[in-house]
Each structure stands twice: as C-alpha cells, then as structure tokens.
Design a protein around this nucleic acid. Structure first.
Lengths: 342, 342
DNA sequence: AGCTGGGGAAAAACCGCTTAAGTCGAGCCG
DNA sequence: CGGCTCGACTTAAGCGGTTTTTCCCCAGCT
C-alpha cells in the first residue's frame, strides 16, 4: 500500500504542490473554488501529511515530550502520573499532538534526554515534573530555547511557565482539621525530600503545627513507594508515644499505612487517623475510606497541556495557580483515643 | 543555539555529507582513518541526527506507538498499563526508540489512529492490547503492513505476532485452590466481556468449576473499574446463598471488593475468600494482603518490545508464550465458614 | 601502452513538505 | 492606454538526512 503524497493530489487536481500546501493549511493563495477541489481530492485519497516531512520543512513536529523521572518499577503503582497523562492526552489529542514518553533514571539522564530531543527536533515542547529545589533542568531548557511548562511550584521554575496548586494551603487545612479533632501527636510520612513540593509541604506542616502548638510533629522521608510507606508507618507506630494521626504524601503510602495499622491491631479511625494526599479512586475503595486531600489531577494535566501549546505558539504564558487540593473527610479520621488526649 | 548538522561536520572534516553519513552509520565507503576523524568531530560538536530528516529519507522514525483503549478516567487506577509501559520503555529506551502514547475512545478510534500513524509515517510499529474476540484491528494492521505485536492470546491475533500468558492455566489453578480449601459457592467478578482474554478466563472458570463439581459458579461482567467491582460485589454478597469465595479479574476490583466485605461486616478470609488477578504492590499493602494471580507485567512489556523491534527489522517473529500468572496465596483466602460447607 | 577493477570520496538525486520569490492576466486609475 | 496593484498560481529553493551515481586514482594484468 502506497501513501498518497501532496504530489499525487497536485497531479490529480492539476495544480502545483505549493497550491496544495496552501489549500490544506488554510492559507491565502488559492481561490475558494480550487481549495474546495483540493480538499475533496485529499479527503478522497485519505491524504495525511507526512509528519517527518512537515517537521523537516520547519513546521512543527506535533509532538510534546514528557520525561518520567521515576524508576520504572515505582511508576506502576503511582496513580498520579497515569492520571496526569490521561489529562494531557485528552487535550493534546484534540489538537492532534502526540505525547512522547520516556522514563529517565535521574536528573542527569533527563537533561540528556532534553538535549537529545532538542537536537533531534523530536519534540516541540516538554513538560517537566518533579521539580527539585534548585533544578538544573530549567536552566538547560531555557538555554536550549525549548518551550516548556513546569508542573510544580513557580518558586523553583526559574522563569519557565508553571502550573501548580498551593500545597501549603492544603497541608495547613489538613493539620488544622486534625488538630480540631483533638490530635496532638501528628506525624507525616513525606515524599522524596529533594523535590520542591515536598519541601513546601514539609515547611507548611512544620509551621502549621508550631502555630497550633503541636510540639510533637515529625516528618519522615520516603521514596513514595508503598513498601517504604509501610516500613516508616510501622516504625512510627511502634514508638513510645505513638502518633494518633498520620498524614501521608501520597495515597499509595496511606493505603499501605492502613494495612500496617490493621496488622498492628490498631483500629482506624478509633486508634489512629489517616490522611492521604491525592485522592485516586483507591482511597474510596479501601475500608475505611480514606480522608484525603483531593484534587483533579487529570484537569491539571489538561491545563498544563493547554499552557504548553500556547507557549509553543509563542504567546506569553502566565503561571497558572490551580485550585489547591482540598480535604475530603471520610472514614479514616476521627478524634484521637481518650487516653492520648492531654 | 543552533543544532549542528551533517553539513557542519562535513565542512569541518573537509569531506562530503555522504561520507559523514557513511561514517556515522558504520557503513563501508570511508577509510578507517576518515571515519575516526568524522566521529571525533561529530562527538565534539554534540551532533545528533535530526529524527525528522532521517525518517523522511526512508530510514526509521525510531518510534513505536501504543494506543490505550480505555477511557482516560479509568487508566489512572489500573496499574497494568503503567507497568506495561515501564517495561516497554525499559527496553525501547536502550535502543533509543521512543514510545508514542495516545488514548482512544474505542476500536474505531484506534483503527483511525493506526491509519493516521501509518500515513504520517509517525511510527515504525505498534503494540496492540485489549484484543477483542474478532478484532478488526489486526486486519487493518496487516493491510497497512505496519509491524505490530499483539499483547494477548494468539487465537485472536489473526496471524500477527503475539505475546501472551495462558490465562486458562492460571484460572484453573485459582479454582482448584479454592475448591481444595473447601469452597463450593464461587463467583467471579469478570472484566469486559468482549475482550479475548476475558472470554478465555470465563470459559476456563466455567470448565474448571464444572469439572470439580461446582454447580454454583457465576461470572458477572464489569468494566474493570473499582466502583463497578464494588457494586457487583455488593450484589453478589447480598444474595440468598452468598458465595464464599470471589475471584476478581483485576486487583483494583479485588481491593474494592475487600472494602465492600468490610462494609458488610464480613471477615476476610474467615467469611469470604478473595483472589485477585494481577499482583500490583497494592495487593500486598492492604489488610489482609490479597491472594493473587501474579505475573511480571513489566517483564511482559520488555519481551513485547523486543518482539516488536525484531518484527520491525523484518525478522520472522515467533509467538511468545510467557509464563502464566501463578497463584500467590496470602491472607485473603482460607477455608469457607463452617455453616456453608455441605 | 591499454584495459580492468576497485576502494575512497565527491556529487547529486531524492524523501515530502513549506515558503519565498516569480509569473501572469485581470481590473482599476489617472 | 500605460502603469500599477492584486489575486491566483507556479517555480524552485530549502529542511537534513540517505542512497545512488559518478569520478578519480592507482595497482595489477595482458
């Protein structure tokens, strides 16, 4: 089977390739009459512009890239990325952009990938996630002039357009809620510490606790995996004065934590309250359903894709401040057990 | 910043573009001496062949496509795809192939996507999953001559190379295990019925039950979502003579089912045994940990990518029969409650 | 001396599309 | 009626690779 080319259409319509190009791209230079004829023929032949040729001729590749900065093994369980991807996809596909995906082992690898994508002209723009506090990637991207949108706090975006939700607000809400329930010993199972949003959450957690007079407020770091979350939870719950409430940095760890609580014979929420961050359907499916900081990640993705598309068109793009995750109280939180109240 | 091109290298080295091409691609036609010089210069300039130009010149695009045939919303929770993707990625990235991802609403959309990918020369090959019993997609792909590997049973692959694990064996193992524990009323919460592997599992479930003299063996269909799984579970457990064991077609629904059991005051495994299919880390994290049919999806992905790569090279590719999912007994299965034994 | 053969490399064609520049006839104006 | 503008196309030059063809030079043979 042979692919039809513009030359075929031109021959068929008795015009030049150039005219066909103008007609197909909706540009001036051909009469409406001719345009219609060309479009009809193109349609009938099932013509599709060869993406390589188009990209080569200086137009866009119609591809955006997303580097996934987590080891492949941990990606599977983390619903965040898949939801983000489906949001991105939803927007990109309507504009017939494709999404190029690649996992990278670390920041260096990611920078190499951007360099390669750039020098191969493989993508028109990229989305950057998991921002570090001082992130080299933004520097490189600006240097390369590769359009990019950062999914993360603008404070670390180094001038690139960014979309984020204010984790400080959400964290504060969670802590206030727990304190209002009567909790005084609250611990946090945090994510990877070098990530910018983790830092923000850690600070917010600390500040909120201090403001509310909670002196026993620990944050323990993890790598976001369920195993690690379970491990840390176990350690926390075996302490002398165990916390009465745990705040997790993602939902997977929260679910793992729930499992550990069961295992140790602690009742949730009677003996232990649990708050998850990110509210995948899973949170509603476990027993008890988890109180979670929920936000619409997929919508986040849609928005990010939109921003990137307009950045690629060259229009100046404003940082977007998406709605912060808000607390959805469910069955996993309650006042602390009697004995542990002051 | 300007991208170095082959012309730049040629000028620098005082040779022609053609010589550079030969040198870089390790083909005959240049002396070792010249080749070394060219390679050195290319390296020093950080040269990367423009992927569009390369694709245009008839070489490969170095991209493989994966259409995700599920509504974006359900993708997030389903660990299967993400694990598959990370496996694919692991293999593809070592050979510097990129993975192009797109969600499609239905089979028609997917066929359209393949057509478009083909006519745009966007991909060198595709991976097909979620096979239907009589799947149109395989016909189209053969017609287009687009290299493809089917992730699913060869019976529905219509001659395309396929990689699969024998779900019949696994299903039989699960049923035998439950029956050996003493269960007599077993129900199955199945996946989307028009998918080929679902059909295979349904048949295997029915046959195994019949062979073992289990007369009350129902299969209920779902759309694989946790919600649907919960719903169906609720209905099954409210029946007159409720089943003492449930076999789920994925892990998400199994977890949802566990939640429902808790909600109804049934103890797992004392009152109800649960078997999950696909063993994401989640299964080990809930309480009790779920007995599951586990297989290495990521390895499956690696293998699939390898097959596709060799199919794209034109070598004949044998169907691969991956190891079937095998039962990992955990805390969610036990003999049925006393009263319900015959 | 003349012919052949072959290796190393230059030259040029080509892939399919975009786009600047050029052509040509029609319409308008002074 | 000459000169101009303008719309509708055509021409042709890239884009950055690959591949085919051509060319040159020199060794080897008759």
């Amino acid at each position: 089977m042979k692919r039809p080319t513009m030359a075929d259409i031109a021959r068929e319509a008795g015009v030049s390739k150039g005219a066909v190009s103008y007609a197909l791209n909706g540009r001036a230079g051909v009469s409406d009459e001719t345009r219609r004829r060309i479009l009809a023929i193109a349609d009938q032949l099932g013509f599709r512009a060869n993406s390589a040729a188009r990209a080569l001729a200086g137009a866009q590749a119609k591809v955006v890239g997303l580097a996934l900065p987590r080891p492949p093994a941990t990606l599977g369980v983390e619903p965040f990325f898949m939801e983000l991807i489906s949001g991105l996809e939803a927007e990109l596909s309507t504009r017939s952009y494709a999404l190029l995906l690649q996992t990278v082992p670390d920041e260096t690898g990611e920078i190499g990938l951007y360099r390669r994508w750039w020098s191969e002209s493989r993508v028109d723009g990229v989305l950057v996630c998991d921002l570090r506090v001082h992130d080299q990637r933004v520097t490189i991207l600006r240097e390369l002039g590769l359009p990019a949108v950062v999914i993360g706090p603008p404070s670390s975006a180094g001038g690139l357009a960014s979309i984020w939700s204010d984790d400080q607000i959400s964290m504060t809400e969670a802590v206030e809620y727990l304190v209002a329930l009567g909790h005084r010993r609250i611990a946090r199972v945090g994510g990877i510490p070098r990530l910018a949003h983790t830092a923000i959450r850690t600070r917010a957690f600390g500040e909120a606790c201090e403001r509310l007079g909670i002196t026993e407020a620990t944050t323990v770091s993890t790598d976001y995996t369920g195993e690690n979350g379970a491990q840390v939870t176990r350690a926390l719950l075996c302490r002398q004065a165990r916390p009465t409430a745990l705040v997790y940095d993602n939902d997977i760890m929260a679910i793992a934590g729930l499992g550990v609580a069961h295992e140790l014979g602690l009742r949730v929420p009677a003996d232990l309250s649990i708050v998850a961050w990110d509210d995948s359907p899973l949170c509603r499916l476990v027993g008890p359903p988890l109180t979670a900081l929920s936000r619409d990640i997929s919508a986040h993705g849609v928005q990010a894709a939109r921003m990137l598309l307009s950045a690629m068109e060259g229009s100046p793009v404003e940082d977007v401040h998406d709605e912060p995750a808000h607390l959805s109280p469910r069955g996993s939180t309650a006042p602390p057990p009697q004995g542990s109240r002051p």
